[in-house]
Amino acid sequence: MAHTPVNHPARPIYRAIGGLTGLYLVVFGVLGIIASAGNEVLAQDDTRSIGQGTNLGFSLISVLLGLAVLAGTAIGRNIDVVLNQWLAYLLMAVSLAGLAFLQTEANIFNFSVATVIVLMVLSLVLLMVGMYGKVGTDEEREAFEKARLVL
């Protein structure tokens, strides 16, 4: 039995928060594409979008990730739960790697400290959304409630 709640009462709110997170990634990516137009894909310069360091490559990845989150949110049916959780883990790994390589030549996505912080916050929000957005039958919900009350 999974330890995530089934049919949480605030599920629509969490789903909306997930959609807003995807929308933020798309807006950040589009503004980053505009700001880094004409630069190399993995340029390491002073390009900023919404106060965060970026380049054309990371802006394109942000747009794709944001569209994936928005598509999962639109589809629902627990696809968004799985997608949000996996993307949260991916964003955590990318932000920690970006923090590790911040002052080196290996900073291929042109991260700044602000980018790392925002990515970590977004990943935690997506993880929270993935944990509380699970949909199930009434029997699954009752089984979860009984198991929760026993603990």
Rank of each mutant, 00 (worst) to 15 (best):
V150M: 12
M1D: 11
E145C: 06
F58T: 07
L119R: 07
S49V: 11
R15K: 02
G133F: 04
V26A: 14
S36F: 06
Q44F: 04
A2I: 13
Q44N: 15
G76N: 10
G38M: 01
N39R: 08
T21Y: 12
D138I: 04
Y132M: 05
L60Y: 06
N110Q: 00
F28D: 05
G98L: 03
L91W: 04
G19S: 15
A106E: 04
V125I: 02
H3L: 15
D138S: 12
D45S: 14
V94S: 00
V41L: 06
G29K: 07
G53F: 07
V135H: 05
N107M: 01
T137R: 08
N84W: 14
F109Y: 03
A106G: 10
T73H: 13
A37G: 15
E145M: 13
G98K: 02
V82E: 09
V63S: 02
I117Y: 00
E139L: 11
L87E: 10
F28Y: 00
S49R: 08
L23Y: 12
L151W: 12
A71G: 12
Q44W: 01
F58P: 09
L102P: 03
G53C: 06
N110C: 04
F58H: 09
L60F: 06
N55P: 09
R11W: 12
L70R: 07
A43Q: 01
I61H: 05
E40Y: 10
L119F: 11
I61D: 00
N55C: 10
F109R: 04
